[in-house]
Design a protein around this nucleic acid. Structure first.
Lengths: 125, 125
DNA sequence: GATGGGTTACGAAGATTTTCGTTGACCCGT
DNA sequence: ACGGGTCAACGAAAATCTTCGTAACCCATC
């Protein structure tokens, strides 16, 4: 299992649509993307073909109109791992600290994180 | 202030060296990188020139042998912001949860994070 | 079974990133 | 002043990513 290459910007734009809409046809992805940016139908198709080869999406070709899908958490995990290795020396502490310092987290968010820490440490609430 | 373009893989490799070594000459960066990968001296030089133009590194050209440097936290913050927007819908909670779930954090790490949560919530220890 | 509207496949052009060979400048010891 | 070594600048080739025109295909309807 080779390291899945990190998505390029164009690929990411497509992934975002699939995350938002769920499994979609080329046309559906195209409709969404073409609102923000002028681009051809076959461009989207080609990207999805390549992303399929790279393993970034799964293709269901059982019908004539193919359906493309992807797992958000799986992709997130890849990108997070990648960033962790490449920019944070593998230290998730470092990354988490910066993430919390940079973006203001809501009180609920902080509580949720605290809860998770409790679980991770095997505490009783 | 234009949006600083996200570093490519080759650029990231160079940034990592600068983070690790601190301000360095082209040759020093080259020495480190050439251990893992065959590449020419002028390749590294060219990359650093481009990265300088992009504002990814600062160049001190006061001596004949130029010195390149960069700020780790600044770059990390950019990349984190970028990832947050592009893959996590801006939710740092989501990102933090996944980061902690994916990579096993040490007990000290968890404690450090907890401490930080305390501060963020303005609690007394 | 021919036509039309929609589909995927293919290939190649255009844009960007990565690589490095060559050149001329500079420094230092002779 | 000369020669050998190191340096940054430049330009262009190679590799990769992005875009789309064209063709081939399928299926419904006529």
């Amino acid at each position: 299992m080779s390291a899945p290459t990190r998505p390029t910007d164009a690929e990411l734009a497509i992934l975002r649509v699939l995350w938002e809409r769920g499994p979609s046809t080329v046309r559906q992805v195209f409709e969404v993307l073409s609102v923000e940016k002028a681009l051809g139908y076959t461009t989207v198709l080609k990207m999805l073909q390549i992303m399929d080869e790279k393993g970034l999406v799964q293709r269901d070709a059982s019908d004539r109109v193919h359906i493309f899908a992807t797992s958000q958490t799986q992709t997130q995990r890849h990108m997070l791992d990648d960033l962790l290795d490449k920019a944070f020396g593998g230290s998730s502490l470092n990354l988490v600290m910066q993430a919390l310092a940079t973006r203001r987290a809501s009180r609920e968010d902080l509580a949720a994180i605290r809860k998770m820490l409790d679980q991770a440490e095997g505490r009783k609430p």
